[in-house]
Every structure is written in structure tokens, then in C-alpha cells.
């Protein structure tokens, strides 16, 4: 049983971590996690709706 982690996954926008569990040459389990969070949904709350596009385009 071996576990491989690939972090960072490059040549993508953003941060991604992949983990794979391998047993007997086959993938038994796998995980993908975005390793960065800024909380944009919380940031746009209570703002003028007309500026939401400006903030969320920066996701």
C-alpha cells in the first residue's frame, strides 16, 4: 500500500493537491483538495450588488 501526493499540481490556475492510494498497482482511493481559500462569498455580502462582478472576477 503506497500513498502518493502531488502538491502542487502545476500548469493550472490555482492550488491543487492530489493524493492517491495505490495497492497492488491499482488505485484504491484518491483525494483532490484545493489548498487555498479566501472566502469571496463572505466578502461580497453587504456590498452594493453592482460591484460584485469586480470582486468575483478575482476568484
Amino acid at each position: 500500500m503506497a500513498k502518493i501526493a502531488i502538491d502542487p499540481v502545476t500548469r493550472i490556475e490555482g492550488h491543487l493537491r492530489l493524493e492517491v492510494e495505490i495497492d497492488g498497482g491499482k488505485v484504491k482511493d484518491a483525494w483532490a483538495s484545493g489548498t487555498m481559500w479566501r472566502g469571496m462569498e463572505l466578502i461580497v455580502k453587504n456590498r452594493d450588488p453592482r460591484e460584485v462582478w469586480a470582486i468575483l472576477s478575482r476568484i
Partner: peptide
């Protein structure tokens, strides 16, 4: 540079 470099994971670091 994470977004454009060739290696990933271990090799990138």
C-alpha cells in the same frame, strides 16, 4: 512558476 512550469509536485518544489 506554478502556473507555467513543466514539473509538478515534488520536482517542482
Amino acid at each position: 512558476h506554478e502556473t507555467i512550469m513543466a514539473p509538478s509536485g515534488h520536482s517542482a518544489e
